[in-house]
Design a protein around this nucleic acid. Structure first.
Length: 592
DNA sequence: GGTGAAAGCGCG
DNA sequence: AAAGCGCGCTTTCACC
């Protein structure tokens, strides 16, 4: 699996790194590093020759590009039709190494604050005009730190040295190195996903909207169906002007009508009997659809038959991706029919069945839980083992175990899992205890939590002062429990994110190996790199969608499964834990 | 008039 | 007033 190898690649060839960045004269510079540390002389590249240079070197040698920020560096290359196989993203890797508890000598890295930049959206923030007079706020506040990271070649070389030293000092450099490679591969994939886009059927989307809301209304007008349903709510409440879109005011009206709710959220409304409730819930559904994914969203985010959200790799503390713009993390199931392959192509969709519990079973080496998930639905396996009575109970108990539920039905079921799967439960319980103590925990590959903030420490120390009140002590216990739930979930969610990165990184390489097909007119919307081969089109935590020529669909599906197997092997070796997929090949493509 | 918090709800 | 983790986005409303 060459993609994820670091120090040397698994295909037997010595890995070489090519570090690139801006040179002192404003052009580009490149320096190649051999595994033994030998450096080539710096090569200068004219501004407009960078894409050519990268393509040439990529073809000539097995390289890992080292650059400051994939989000900024790779998008222009993709636009120029250049794909790269591997990279090392200095910004993302810095974030991981800086906080990794297993790094023995982090001091040098932590002494390079300019690389400690938070993930940012692909669109650069608008800088204030340089000639604007400083406001009072500017004078009082700390100097504004640059939001980006240095993009110079010299800085990149220095930072790469620091990162290699830090990695070498880690307790398990192999694992942490794998994480750095996986994270960087994820950054490449995120850029490629935005470039390729999700094939999106605007007519189907419009049909879903019209069916629910009525025809598209004039700008600033409410759709017909919303007006009708709103009128029903008003009639049932006996009030001509119910403020449907303002929760605080709606709450007052509901209480005046005798509906004793404390909020206007749907789960609470659903618990009351009143003729106004059904239409009100209906109205809220419609309003949500309209504002979140209505015609305005369609106009803004879908162009040329492609939905192009922005992904933020490493944007979540656990290592999951975040998104910024386009709402890729929250496409409602209702709109899934709008994901539609181009003519002659199809969508291969897969999601992992119960990824997080399976990851937990593998981490903990829990044989009973592994057995419960072998060859079948994990929750069904838990029921078979006799721990709980129904699949629903198994799911509720498992989520409660991983999230730290203490009350309600979920909390009530957790002790049964503790008896049936002590190894798995010990692992999450220990992670929670460590977090509650103020300590740090790590994922399987070594992504660590940051230490608790000053506020948290302050609450804890206040509670141990001689004059601490009962209230102080309660607040400290609550904060400790809160952090414990976070660290409990961190180890599982974060390791699941690592598994998923390995899965899609492996799959990406397999897809790139497909023989190219003739380009169809529609497929060109994916851009020069993606219109001739199967390519990733969507990724969300534990599911993936591949856009593929129909002729390749079955082979792609096999690769998706094979990559899942490879990810399990890469992370957990010969652990018996299986990662079964729910996999579908879409039947309908767009009309010719 | 712009900003930020909170409510509410969509996703895993 | 969600119980129980992690997010983003839209809207309203209080405030400067």
């Amino acid at each position: 699996m060459p993609e994820l190898a670091t120090a040397s690649s698994a295909d037997g060839t010595a890995a070489r790194w090519c570090v690139i960045g801006r040179d002192a004269r404003g052009g580009w510079g490149a320096v190649e590093l051999a595994p033994d540390g030998a450096r080539s002389a710096a090569v200068s590249i004219a501004l407009d020759r960078l894409a050519d240079f990268v393509e040439q070197r990529e073809r000539a040698a097995s390289l890992r590009w080292v650059w400051h920020d994939t989000a900024r560096q790779y998008a222009p290359l993709l636009a120029a039709g250049v794909r790269v196989e591997r990279c090392h993203d200095l910004r993302l890797c810095h974030q991981i190494l800086r906080h990794a508890g297993s790094v023995g000598e982090p001091a040098q890295l932590r002494g390079a604050p300019e690389w400690n930049a938070p993930p940012e959206a692909a669109t650069a923030p608008v800088a204030p005009p340089a000639d604007a007079p400083p406001t009072l706020f500017d004078v009082v506040a700390e100097p504004r730190r640059s939001r980006g990271v240095p993009d110079g070649l010299a800085e990149a070389l220095d930072e790469f040295d620091r990162q290699r030293s830090a990695l070498a000092s880690a307790r398990e450099p192999g694992r942490l190195g794998l994480l750095l490679a996986a994270e960087s591969a994820g950054a490449l994939i995120a850029a490629e996903l935005s470039a390729a886009g999700v094939p999106w059927d605007v007519d189907e989307h419009d049909r879903v909207l019209s069916e629910a809301l009525g025809p598209r209304p004039a700008p600033d007008a409410k759709p017909a169906r919303m007006l009708e349903v709103g009128a029903m709510v008003r009639r049932e409440l006996g009030s001509p002007d119910v403020p449907l879109d303002s929760p605080p005011r709606l709450l007052r009206v509901l209480r005046a009508a005798g509906i004793e709710v404390d909020s206007t959220s749907q789960w609470e409304l659903a618990q009351h009997e009143h003729p106004a409730i059904a239409p009100l819930l209906h109205y809220k559904k419609l309003a949500r659809l309209l504002t979140a994914n209505g015609w305005a969203w369609l106009d803004e985010w879908v162009r040329d038959g492609r939905y192009r959200p922005l992904y933020v790799p490493g944007g979540v503390v656990t290592g999951r991706w975040a998104s910024s713009g386009g709402g890729a993390l929250q496409i409602p199931r209702q709109l899934r029919p709008a994901l539609r392959a181009d003519p002659g192509w199809t969508l291969v969709s897969a999601d992992v069945a119960q990824l997080e519990p399976r990851v937990l079973a593998a981490m903990a080496g829990d044989r009973a839980m592994t057995e419960a998930g072998a060859g079948k639905d994990l929750y069904a396996g838990i029921v078979e083992s006799g721990a709980v009575a129904t699949r629903q109970e198994a799911k509720l108990a498992m989520l409660g175990a991983m999230y730290g539920a203490t009350t309600g039905e979920s909390g009530r079921l957790v002790p049964r899992l503790r008896r049936a799967y002590p190894a798995a439960m010990d692992l999450v319980d220990e992670a929670a205890a460590e977090g509650a103590r103020g300590g740090w925990v790590s994922t399987w590959l070594g992504r660590s939590t940051q230490p608790p903030g000053q506020e948290w420490e302050h609450v804890q120390s206040s509670a141990s002062m001689p004059d601490a009140t009962g209230r102080d002590e309660a607040a400290a216990r609550r904060a400790a429990r809160d952090r414990g739930r976070f660290t409990r979930n961190f180890v599982v969610q974060g390791t699941a994110a690592e598994w998923a990165l390995c899965w899609i990184a492996d799959l990406r390489q397999r897809l790139a190996a497909f023989a190219p097909v003739e380009v169809s007119q529609a497929a060109r919307a994916s851009g020069p790199i993606f219109s001739r081969r199967p390519h990733l089109a969507f990724f969300l935590h534990d599911e993936v969608i591949v856009h593929a020529p129909v002729a390749h669909a079955v082979a792609v599906a096999a690769d998706v499964r094979e990559s899942a197997r490879a990810a399990g092997l890469l992370l957990f070796g010969d652990s018996a834990v299986e990662f079964p997929l729910d996999l579908r090949i879409a039947e309908r493509a767009a009309k010719e």
